[in-house]
């Protein structure tokens, strides 16, 4: 609006996204490739160990060495991507679908519905997330899918709260009032104006929660409530490597670093999505 573009001199002809963001997308792309075609990246078997080749240090053949059963660590880390990403995807889907539905309902209906939903959300947020997911796991039993559902259940409250806030924000917007003023019906306005404008930040949260879910799943895996051995799961890999910490620290360090990179990348991407909102 302060429109004086005098002496317009573009400093850079080509505007690239920030380097960090590009790296983040690159990391996510690599992880997705690992998850979909692990065999393309890891030639070794992640499950079958080679007798007599236990706890080897990193070498050309085994870039990350071998674990206590002689299995190639790199192969296990690469195959672990599928477990983690699928689990995180399931968890975020659960949170996104149920949470957003609750939030939309609360924000659009208001009144008693809103109060009831929000008290439920308050309650879920009052219980520490680890304890809440452990409670769900007790109900459902151990296993990777159940762990993912448990993590998703915890995020329902976050999605519900954000989508409600967004719906309320957008509902108060003048363009929504203007849409009613143009003769729009309730559902049409909700569909055409409220939903699209409220969803941007919900999607940014989804990206953020994807990272949190990877982290939470790794924690559950580490504690032994997720995928059972010998499944290559990052949290489980760290737990297994821990026994050999003094002699083979890389067995613990490598899967942990991958988790850090994955979570950092999703956080960066989520930030870029959120920033585009304004």
């Amino acid at each position: 609006m302060s429109g004086a573009t005098l002496g317009l001199a573009p400093l850079r002809a080509l505007r690239l996204p920030p380097l960090g963001l590009m790296l983040a997308w690159a990391v996510v792309a690599v992880l997705l490739a690992w998850a979909f075609v692990p065999g393309f990246f890891a030639w070794q078997d992640p499950l079958a160990g080679i007798a007599g080749r236990q706890l080897e240090p990193p070498s050309f053949e085994h870039p990350l060495g071998t674990d206590g059963l002689g299995r190639d660590m790199l192969a296990r880390v690469i195959h672990g991507a599928r477990e983690s990403l699928l689990g995180a995807f399931l968890a975020v889907s659960v949170g996104l679908v149920f949470g957003t539905a609750l939030g939309l309902l609360a924000g659009a209906r208001g009144g008693v519905t809103d109060a009831a939903v929000m008290r439920l959300v308050d309650t879920l947020l009052a219980i520490p997330s680890l304890l809440l997911s452990l409670s769900v796991i007790i109900l459902l039993g151990f296993g990777s899918i159940n762990a993912a559902i448990a993590v998703g259940f915890v995020s329902v409250a976050h999605f519900a709260r954000l989508s409600r806030t967004e719906v309320l924000r957008v509902r108060r917007a003048e363009y929504v009032e203007a849409a009613f003023g143009s003769g729009g019906r309730f559902l049409a306005v909700l569909w055409r104006h409220v939903l699209p404008n409220a969803m941007t930040s919900v999607l940014a949260l989804a990206a953020l929660q994807f990272g949190s879910a990877i982290l939470a799943l790794a924690t559950l895996g580490f504690l032994g409530y997720g995928a059972p051995p010998p499944t290559p799961e990052w949290g489980l890999l760290i737990a297994e490597g821990r026994d050999f910490l003094a002699t083979a620290w890389w067995l613990t360090a490598a899967p942990g670093l991958v988790v850090v990179l994955a979570v950092l990348s999703t956080e960066r991407i989520s930030r870029s999505l959120g920033a585009r909102r304004t």
């Binding site: 990272g211 982290l215 790794a218 924690t219 580490f222 949290g235 760290i238 821990r242 910490l245 613990t252 360090a253 942990g256 988790v259 850090v260 990179l261 979570v263 950092l264 956080e267």
Partner: peptide, 11 residues
Amino acid sequence: VAVPVFWLGIM
């Protein structure tokens, strides 16, 4: 934020 607590402890 991205660092898993348990892993950090071990490291």
